[in-house]
Write a protein that binds this DNA or RNA. Structure first.
Length: 490
RNA sequence: GCUCGUAUAGUGUAGUGGCCCAUCAUGAAGGACUCUCAUUCCUUCGACCCGGGUUCAAAUCCCGGUACGAGCACCA
C-alpha cells in the first residue's frame, strides 16, 4: 500500500482551471481616468503572474468608453503601461484601447439587432426600472428588426439625444436576478459637449457601448481565455454570459476577488483622488499621502514587495482589510539586504568631546556585508552631533566609536567625556555624525495623512537618486536628492 | 425590497469528507545574535460564525439563522 503523502501547503496562486500552457490569454482592464492605484496593482499582479506562469499573454486594455462620468485622463495612456511594466518586470503583451475598437462594437450591435436578440429601447430610465421591477416587457421589446435598425440610425445621426434611446440585450424579464433583465448595451453620449479626450476620437462617435457590452465583445475579439476580476463584477459575468449565448460564443473561465481595504487608507477611488489633486489638496498623483502606484514607488515600495503582497492575499472572495505593516514587511525583505546604512540626526545637538581618540572612525556600510566597505568619519575637531532626544540619558555609546558621558554644564556646545572605546556595558547605543561628515538635509515622511518634514543632518554620501537606504535607528528611506530623503517605513 | 456572494488565530492565508486537538505569514510577548529601535534565528500566544442534519467520520457536504459585502446606473 502506498502511504499517503502529508498534504503540503500550496505555494503561490491557485491552479488556473482549464488552462493550456502557451494558450492562456488574460487581461487587465482599467479605466484610464487616472494613473494606477494600489488596488489596480492587484489586477496587474494576479493576471500578469498567471500569464507568466502559463506562458500566455497579458492584455492591457483601456476601458475608456465613458466621456462624461469618468472621462479619461490623456496622460494615463502612457503612464499606465509604464507602471504596469515596472510592477511586472515585463511589458503587457498587447495593449488595446477600447475607444479605437468602436467599429467592432458597432458591428456587433447591428448584428444583435439584425438577429433580433437586441432592441432599441426608447423608455426613460425610470420607466424601464418600473418594467424591470414588475417583470413586464417594455413595448419597445417587440419592435420589428427593421424599426430597430431605423432607430439605431437615429441614435447615430443625432436625431436622438442622450436619454432618448438605448440598445438593450434581450434576456428575459422574469429572470430571478433583476440586474440581468434586458440590460443596456449601448447608449448615447453628448460628445459635442463632452468629447473624448483623445484627439483622434473626440466627437467622432455619439453612441458608445457600456462596460458589459464592450468588455464582452472585446474579450471575444481578443480571444481571452480567463477573466480574473473583482466580485463586484459577478453580475457582469452573468449578463455577458447571456450575450455570449446569443452570439453562440463560449464565456471565458472566471475568478473573482473580494474588496480590499487598507486599514490606514480606507478605500481608494481614482475619481476622488483626481478631484482632490485638481483642487490642490494633494500635489500630484505621486503625492506620498496617496495610495497610487506612483506614490508608493516614489516612497520606496518595490515592485517585488507589491507582487509578493498581492500573491499572498490570493484571490479569495472575502472582503478584507489589511494593515500596511503587511506590505512593509514584504518591502523590508526586498530591500534590507541591499540597503546601505546611513545616519540621519534629527534635531541635531552639538557636542564637544574630551579625551583621547583616533582622528578617524570607521563604521560598516552594511553590517551583514563587511565586504561593502566602511564609512569614515573625521573627528579630529572633536565636534559631533547627536539627536536631541538621545540626551535624555547622559551615559551613551556612540555607535562604532566609544562610550561618552554627557557633562552636566551650561557650556555651549555641550561637553562630553569620552570613555571606553571597547563596548563594556549595556548603555544605549546612539547614532551620531561628525562635523565634517554631514550636511543639512530633510527627511520627508507621510504619516497619518500628513506630509511631515524633518530637518536634520545627513551623513555625506554619493548614492544616486532613487537608492534605497536604511537610516539607522529610524527606518528605510529613498534618496530623492543629495540632501533629501523620503521615509519609506520604519 | 429583489438578486448574488463570503464567513478558519489580532490581521491575512492553506485546507475541497478521515493525514487537522488545523498550515504558513504577519502581529504581539520573550529570548539568541548584533556596537542600529535593522536584518537573521529560536520560543510562546492565538482560529474552523451559530444551530440543526447527512455520514462510521465534517473546517470540508446539505438546510436554517446571523453577520458582512456586492449588483439591481443611459459609470467602469
Amino acid at each position: 500500500m502506498e502511504k499517503r503523502e502529508k498534504k503540503e501547503r500550496r505555494e503561490g496562486l491557485p491552479e488556473l482551471k482549464n488552462a493550456v500552457k502557451g494558450k492562456v490569454v488574460l487581461r487587465f482592464a482599467p479605466n484610464p481616468n487616472g494613473p494606477l492605484s494600489f488596488g489596480h496593482a492587484r489586477g496587474i499582479v494576479i493576471n500578469g503572474s498567471y500569464a507568466k506562469e502559463w506562458d500566455g499573454e497579458l492584455i492591457l486594455r483601456f476601458d475608456d468608453t465613458d466621456t462624461v462620468v469618468k472621462p479619461p485622463l490623456p496622460s494615463a495612456y502612457t503612464q499606465i503601461p509604464e507602471e504596469a511594466e515596472w510592477l511586472l518586470g515585463f511589458k503587457p503583451h498587447r495593449v488595446v484601447i477600447a475607444s479605437e475598437q468602436m467599429p467592432h462594437y458597432y458591428e456587433h450591435a447591428v448584428k444583435m439587432l439584425e438577429r433580433n436578440f437586441g432592441y432599441v429601447c426608447q423608455c426613460s430610465g425610470e420607466e424601464f426600472k418600473a418594467f424591470r421591477v414588475s417583470k413586464t416587457e417594455c413595448p419597445c421589446r417587440s419592435n420589428e428588426v427593421s424599426l430597430n435598425l431605423e432607430l439605431w440610425e437615429k441614435m447615430n445621426d443625432g436625431t436622438f439625444v442622450p436619454g432618448d434611446a438605448v440598445v438593450r440585450v434581450k434576456t428575459a424579464m422574469d429572470l430571478k436576478n433583476p440586474a440581468l433583465r434586458d440590460w443596456p448595451a449601448l447608449r448615447i453620449q453628448n460628445t459635442a459637449e463632452h468629447p473624448h479626450p483623445r484627439p483622434s476620437i473626440g466627437s467622432k462617435y455619439r453612441v458608445w457601448p457600456l462596460l458589459d457590452f464592450q468588455s464582452a465583445v472585446e474579450d471575444h475579439v481578443q480571444g481571452v481565455t480567463h477573466i480574473i476580476r473583482g466580485k463586484d463584477l459577478m453580475d457582469s459575468t452573468r449578463k455577458q454570459t447571456l450575450l455570449y449565448e446569443h452570439f453562440g460564443w463560449t464565456y471565458p473561465e472566471t475568478m473573482y476577488w473580494g474588496r480590499v481595504k487598507v486599514h490606514e487608507w480606507g478605500g481608494f477611488s481614482t475619481s476622488q483622488m483626481r478631484r482632490d489633486i485638481e483642487s490642490g489638496l494633494f500635489k500630484g498623483w505621486d503625492d506620498p499621502r496617496l495610495p497610487t502606484l506612483s506614490a508608493l514607488r516614489k516612497t520606496g515600495i518595490t515592485a517585488a514587495a507589491l507582487r509578493d503582497f498581492w500573491v499572498e492575499l490570493g484571490i479569495t472572495q472575502k472582503d478584507i482589510s489589511v494593515p500596511l505593516s503587511t506590505l512593509y514587511s514584504h518591502n523590508t525583505k526586498s530591500i534590507d539586504d541591499d540597503a546601505p546604512r546611513l545616519s540621519f540626526v534629527r534635531k541635531p545637538v552639538n557636542l564637544k568631546i574630551k579625551g583621547e581618540h583616533s582622528n578617524i572612525v570607521n563604521v560598516e556600510v552594511h553590517p551583514n556585508h563587511p565586504n561593502r566597505g566602511m564609512r569614515s568619519f573625521d573627528v579630529s575637531n572633536q565636534s559631533i552631533w547627536i539627536e536631541e532626544q538621545d540626551l535624555a540619558q547622559s551615559e551613551l555609546r556612540l555607535k562604532g566609536f566609544a562610550n561618552i558621558s554627557i557633562l552636566d554644564s551650561d557650556a555651549q556646545p555641550r561637553m562630553a567625556q569620552l570613555g571606553s572605546v571597547e563596548r563594556n556595558d549595556r548603555r544605549p547605543i546612539v547614532h551620531w555624525l561628525s562635523d565634517t561628515g554631514a550636511k543639512k538635509a530633510t527627511l520627508i515622511a507621510a504619516e497619518d495623512g500628513e506630509l511631515n518634514r524633518y530637518e536634520g543632518l545627513l551623513e555625506n554620501h554619493t548614492y544616486p537618486n532613487g537608492t534605497m537606504v536604511q537610516i539607522e535607528r529610524i527606518g528605510y528611506a529613498r534618496v530623492i536628492d543629495n540632501t533629501t530623503l523620503i521615509l519609506t517605513h520604519s
